[in-house]
Design a protein around this nucleic acid. Structure first.
Length: 151
DNA sequence: GCCAACGTTGGC
DNA sequence: GCCAACGTTGGC
């Protein structure tokens, strides 16, 4: 079992939107590293922290579960979609996504500041300088620590 | 293949 | 709104 963290802008697709939808395709990822994680390493059943950037507070707001194998990101083929990519062809898709199922919304989110302060979460990609990865792995050690902090 | 210019992310 | 950090693009 692998653990992950995905970012969403709070005013774009929020944890409340996700809670309402129950399930969503994690489309619109246009970064190769992030795509490779989804394509090569995500497995059905993996647990995924739902992180809000540029929100109040910025931090972890919920938990999700990978609910599908990787599949082509259809928004890349749609000219009217903001994530349209003319280079991605339907017979050879550049971009993929997975489906995520809603698990829970935390009553008290764990803020980025709290994560930075915690001595046991030092290996998180999230707090590394210049981190911009919107899909990133979380070590089992960090996962357990986050779970206990989010109880 | 280098690298400057540009666009985006995301904390503050 | 600012700006540092980073990825991508495109001229050469």
């Amino acid at each position: 079992m692998n653990y992950w963290l995905v970012k969403s802008e709070g005013n774009c697709y929020s944890i409340d939107d996700f809670k309402h939808d129950k399930k969503t395709s994690w489309t619109g990822i246009r970064n190769y590293q992030a795509r490779n994680f989804m394509r090569d390493s995500m497995k059905k059943g993996d647990l995924v922290f739902f992180y809000h950037s540029m929100s109040d507070p910025t931090g972890i707001h919920g938990l999700a579960k990978v609910a599908s194998t990787p599949h082509p990101d259809e928004t890349a083929f749609d000219k009217d979609d903001e994530h349209y990519d003319y280079k991605s062809k339907e017979d050879d898709p550049t971009w993929v996504c997975v489906d995520l199922a809603f698990v829970k919304k935390y009553k008290t989110p764990l803020s980025l500041a709290d994560i930075k302060k915690d001595s046991k979460l030092g290996d998180m990609q999230l707090i590394k300088k210049g981190d911009r990865l919107s899909v990133q792995p979380v070590s089992e050690k960090s996962f357990k620590r986050l779970q206990s902090l989010l109880k």
